[in-house]
Design a protein around this nucleic acid. Sequence first.
DNA 1: AGCAGGTTTAGCG
DNA 2: CGCTAAACCTGCT
Length: 157
Amino acid sequence: MTDSVDIIYANPIDRYVELVYNGADLISVRFINSKERLTEKKTRQASFELDEYFKGERTDFSCGFDISVLSSFSRKVLFETSKIGYGEMTTYSELAGSIGTKAFRAVGRALADNPIPIIIPCHRVVAKSGIGGYSAGVDIKTRVLEHEAKTRIANNL
DNA sequence: AGCAGGTTTAGCG
DNA sequence: CGCTAAACCTGCT
């Protein structure tokens, strides 16, 4: 199988974002902290959608993704996470409750393995008191949330 | 079987 | 508010 890779630049977090596709399906999103200037490359729908998202012109994603490599528990967590609306927030324990378990720590673990941040909005899950953690770094999480809040006000959502 | 994890809650200073 | 400790489950060794 031939994986293809797109690159976009995300202004709100000052990072490049790498999107990896397996055929038509998005399988991974990664943040790149690069000093040198990279060439943007957008060939698939998710890349365009993500680009619009970071420009504040898009609040939801219609593109498909493939997380079949993950366990059924992780998929359940991520699917539930994908239902959280733009600019909304939940806590780890609430999310656990909504899939019928009390295992909030297991939820945190599943989110940590999320191969597709932003599109699966794991950044909208925070700790009950405080921001919680983030695989790519809490600073990114914070800035993404700020970006959503700002966009929401600008568009009167 | 043992351990750590993107937590939470309670208990005590 | 600060710190410690126990507890929920999953995933990796």
